[in-house]
Amino acid sequence: MNKFDAEKDEVVIEVKDLVRKFGDRVVLNGINIKIRKGEIFVIMGGSGCGKSTLLRHIIGNLKPTSGQIFLMGKDIASAEEAALNEIRKKIGMSFQSSALFDSMTVGENVSLPLREHTKLNKNVIEIMVKMKLELVGLRGFEDLLPSEISGGMKKRVGLARAIAMDPQIVFYDEPTAGLDPIMSSVIDKLIVDLSNKLSMTSVVVTHDMKSVMAIADRIAMLYEGRVLEIGTPDEIKNSKNPLVKQFINGSFDGPISFFQEKEDYLDQLTG
C-alpha cells in the first residue's frame, strides 16, 4: 500500500532528465525522480551505479551535463552560489565517512551551522546542541574529539550535525556502511524516528537490503545510470524485472554480470 497520494502530496524534489558525463563515461543517463514531502525515499543499486553521484547532484555539489533538478521548487542546477546556499540551509546531509571536522569537538561540530547561520545566544546554541545529541543518543559526548569516538558514534554525530538547523530534507549517503548489524539497526531506527518526529523528508542512498526494507516508503532502483524501477518495498520485492530480482536476492547468477564480456577478456589476454 502506498501511504502517499501522488496527486495530493507536495513534491519537494524533482529530477528531470538528468544526464551527467565524466569525460566520455556516462554516469547518469536520463534520471527522472519525484520525491514527496515527508517520505523516506531510498535510492539503491550496486556499487558504481551512480547513486552517490545522483545524491551529489541533488544537493548541488555537482552540476549536471544536462537536465534539471528542482529542490523545494528551485532549479538548483542553474542556481547562483548565493541562492544555492540559501537552499542548503534548509537541507541536511549525513556523509558516508561522517565527514566530521577533526579539529573540532563533537559539540563544536554540531553547533557549527548554528554559529555560522544564526545570531542565537551562546547558551541557546549550547542547549540546542544538547537536544540534537540527545536525539541521536549521544548527550554528554560534547567535549570529545572525533578521533576519540567509534565509527558508529561518528555517524550519529554527523547525523546530529545534519539536523542541527532543523532541515526540511535530510540526505543520507550509505548511513549503515561499515557498521555492525546492531548499530545498523540503531541508525535505521533513528532515520525513521527523525522522519516521524520532525516530519522531515529523508533521501537515503544505500545498498544494504536489510535496512532498505526496514525504512523505505518508496524505493528507486538504479542500474548503470538509469532508474530501473520505482515503487514501495512490496512492489520492489515482487518485481518481475530480473535485474531487480537478482539485486534483492543478492544472487550470483543473473543478468547483472560481475565479469566483463567474455570476448573482450579473450582479446585482452591474447593481445
Binding site: N61, R88, G92, M93, Q96, A99, L100, F101, S103, L112
Partner: peptide, 25 residues
C-alpha cells in the same frame, strides 16, 4: 596537508553542504 586531508575525507564537501564557503572559513 590539513586542507588536503579535509578534501579527501569529504570535510570540504560537508562545509559546502552546510552552506559555509570554504574560502571564507
Amino acid at each position: 596537508a590539513e586542507l588536503g586531508t579535509m578534501k579527501v575525507s569529504e570535510q570540504i564537501e560537508a562545509l559546502e553542504t552546510l552552506a559555509i564557503d570554504p574560502v571564507r572559513f
